[in-house]
Simulated assay, not measured.
Amino acid sequence: MTKSEVILAIARKTGIDKEDVKNTIDELFRVIQDAVIDDHRVHFSGFGSFSKKKRAKKIGRNISTNTAIVVEEHYIPFFKHSKFFAAKIKAAGATC
């Protein structure tokens, strides 16, 4: 499902104008990104949490030239689903 499909589905279910839904979703993403960048965890009860995770320095390999390269320590965005969300997905998968 694409972002535009999500916007359309929300607009249809709520009766809110598509442009208002789009602006709200865009702002939600900005708030989540800014919070995670500033070292905050964003938690949605029953859904999951967004945070950043530290990746340690390691030795990688450039497969084109077969040489070792150093991948410095860095942060990545991370999503951890809730147990409730995982259980719903698991239950829905059993009925497919």
Rank of each mutant, 00 (worst) to 15 (best):
G15C: 05
M1L: 02
I63H: 06
I63S: 06
K13R: 15
G48H: 09
A86Y: 13
V71H: 04
T95M: 10
S64F: 04
E73T: 01
F78T: 06
L28K: 13
D38W: 03
F84G: 12
I16R: 01
F79T: 04
S82V: 15
D39Y: 11
I69W: 02
R12Q: 05
R55M: 05
F84W: 06
F84C: 11
I7E: 00
G93P: 04
K13T: 08
A86G: 13
R55V: 11
K80P: 07
K83Y: 10
I32P: 02
K53W: 08
I16S: 01
I25K: 02
I25M: 07
N23M: 13
K53H: 07
L28F: 15
Q33P: 05
Q33L: 14
P77A: 05
S51N: 13
A56L: 02
A87W: 08
A35K: 11
S64M: 15
F79P: 00
M1C: 08
E27P: 10
A56C: 09
V70G: 11
T14S: 07
G60K: 07
G93A: 14
H81N: 07
I7G: 00
A86V: 13
K58Q: 06
G60Q: 01
A68P: 04
T24N: 04
H40T: 10
D34L: 14
E27L: 15
G60M: 03
A91N: 15
A94T: 11
H40L: 14
A87R: 11
V42Q: 04
H40W: 10
N62S: 03
T95Q: 12
I32R: 07
T95H: 11
V42N: 04
K52G: 02
T14M: 00
I25F: 09
A68G: 05
T14H: 02
V71E: 00
K58E: 05
F50N: 00
V6P: 01
T95P: 04
A86N: 15
A68R: 10
I76T: 01
Y75K: 01
K54G: 06
K57C: 07
K18N: 05
E5C: 02
I32M: 03
I37D: 10
K54E: 13
I25Q: 01
C96R: 14
V31R: 11
K22E: 14
Y75Q: 08
F29G: 15
E73P: 03
K80R: 12
S4E: 09
T95A: 12
F47N: 06
S49E: 12
